[in-house]
Design a protein around this nucleic acid. Sequence first.
DNA 1: TTTACATTTGACAAATTTTGACAAGCCAAA
DNA 2: TTTGGCTTGTCAAAATTTGTCAAATGTAAA
Lengths: 95, 95
Amino acid sequence: MGHLGQKIRELREKQNLLLRQVAAQLEVDTALISKIERGERNASKQQVIDIAKFLNANEEELSTLWLADKIESAIVEEPAIAYQAMKIANKNLKK
Amino acid sequence: MGHLGQKIRELREKQNLLLRQVAAQLEVDTALISKIERGERNASKQQVIDIAKFLNANEEELSTLWLADKIESAIVEEPAIAYQAMKIANKNLKK
DNA sequence: TTTACATTTGACAAATTTTGACAAGCCAAA
DNA sequence: TTTGGCTTGTCAAAATTTGTCAAATGTAAA
């Protein structure tokens, strides 16, 4: 787990930014950003938006990773039936 | 939303059982079963198992619907990116 | 109509989960 | 060593979820 966190870390390091700087921008503790990057905590939707902006990243891309993490944490306990369940969920999405 | 609830109601009515009877079996209030059937509340995993047993239903089928509901509620706010996110989640599921 | 149930609804307290801060700890580079 | 960046564990506050209760609503028979 941690698609979003991995991506954030990658983006942040590529720009030589410190956790502290991202944290300041979002007005949260450094520890929280650390946890988000390592997938120990989930970011809120607003935080994803703010991070995307600060890191000059594509907001939709980050949001997609964020949602993927959410889905993964929903299915992780039930891998055997996850695929079928996603098929059902996806089908009804189209309506 | 409410794949599981719909199915439960269908099974229960086909067997001419009352909410009260299902509730008694699960040792919960009738109102809760009503809410589960109408998708107003989520059942716990254990409740899904107990209901499947009591209604002589396929446990895996009900669990799948239960998980589909969970996934749907995760993606419902982000329909535009849901498909892509599911693809990512599914990909990592295989590992 | 009344009556008798079955179901639904809304409000609520209790329980659980999530959230973010804080402080202490770790680790690598100087 | 010290320094600076990151990580970790713990905690209280906030938010969400859970199931119950009582009242409301629906329904079918008498």
